[in-house]
């Protein structure tokens, strides 16, 4: 890590800790939702951006994590933290299964297969309403009995930091190298001795487990879980967040998710124009700033900061 990165990290940590005291409860709520999306988008980014598996069904694992925790809590009275843990495990296992199933698929076939998986799951949740609450929703008990969202905020902040740093460590390790090797050229990676099968499945399992974690937090936070968490619209939103942040840097994706969530909320007062504007913004970003807005922006700032710093040092030396 270079000096500007460390400085920024410290600054961000301070800002994150103080955030609830700088804004009102509404923007705190938006921030919490933004951080949930940040976890989902970052895990999708690990799978699609680094491991090269463009999944269009990633939100299914959010639903699996959420519904596992919710159903266990509602039907079997399992304590929520235990249920959330079970949700992560379930999402990771099913994710590994899906990863294994689509080992031979790539590109659009993989995207459509995963989309179909998530649609089938959504329709099943809708139809089996005796267990899932169906479209009317599953009422999930609260995690904290507090009047404010503060405990939720610090919990999701911790979860976000742990999961993103964890995924970054994975990506920085040999595993991450294998992921990228498979993405660039599967045959060549296999020839070089990378266990392609194992690492494709592993990438799926890690990403799905992290998505399941986000779902497990989302359920008790919103208090009502509806099948549209696994809708294609949600998937598109998650992908848009990752793209705006720049798929190839996880902190960029996190910033992208939070920025997009704030934007979508800020557009709220535009009524039926809101999604029109959102669609338009997505189109313009994709069309004219394909590498995302935030990561390139940060690089530019850093370059400028380094330059200024050098000039400053030179100035005092004179």
């Amino acid at each position: 890590m270079r000096a500007p990165d460390i400085l920024l990290s410290l600054l961000l940590a301070g800002l994150a800790a103080a955030f609830p005291f700088l804004v009102n409860a509404y923007w705190l709520h938006v921030m919490i939702i933004g951080m949930i999306y940040a976890i989902i988008a970052a895990s999708w980014s690990l799978l699609a951006g680094f491991a090269g598996q463009f999944s269009f069904g990633h939100v299914a694992f959010v639903a699996i994590g959420g519904y596992t925790a919710g159903i266990l809590a509602v039907s079997l009275h399992v304590p929520l933290p235990l249920g959330m843990l079970a949700g992560i495990v379930a999402a990771a296992l099913i994710g590994a299964g899906v990863g294994w199933t689509c080992l031979r698929m790539s590109g659009p076939y993989l995207a459509i297969f995963t989309m179909a998986f998530s649609e089938v799951l959504r329709i099943t949740i809708v139809t089996e309403n005796e267990i899932t609450g169906g479209p009317g929703g599953l009422n999930v008990p609260q995690l904290f009995h507090a009047q404010t969202d503060l405990p939720y905020y610090y919990l999701i902040l911790a979860l976000l930091v742990v999961s993103v740093v964890g995924m970054m460590l994975v990506l920085a390790s040999r595993w991450g190298l294998f992921f990228r090797a498979i993405r660039e050229n599967e045959q060549a990676a296999a020839a070089a001795g990378v266990k392609v099968t194992r690492f494709r499945i592993l990438a799926c399992a890690i990403a799905s487990g992290v998505a399941g974690l986000a779902g497990g937090f989302y359920a008790p936070y919103i208090g009502i879980l509806t099948p549209d968490v696994a809708s294609q619209d949600q998937m598109g939103l998650v992908v848009a967040m990752a793209i705006v942040g720049g798929v190839e840097t996880l902190p960029g994706v996190v910033a992208g998710a939070i920025a997009v969530e704030f934007m979508v909320e800020a557009l709220r007062s535009y009524g039926q124009w809101r999604l029109v504007l959102f669609g338009l913004l997505l189109l313009l970003t994709m069309r004219f700033a394909r590498n995302g807005l935030l990561a390139p922006g940060w690089l530019a700032i850093r370059r400028l900061a380094v330059l200024q710093g050098q000039r400053l040092i030179r100035g005092t030396a004179d």
């Binding site: 910033a255 913004l281 700033a289 807005l293 935030l294 390139p296 922006g297 700032i301």
Partner: peptide, 13 residues
């Protein structure tokens, strides 16, 4: 993280 230093096009967006 402040965006004034972004490329012009991005600033406009």
């Amino acid at each position: 993280n402040g965006k004034r230093a972004l490329p012009r096009r991005d600033v406009l967006a």
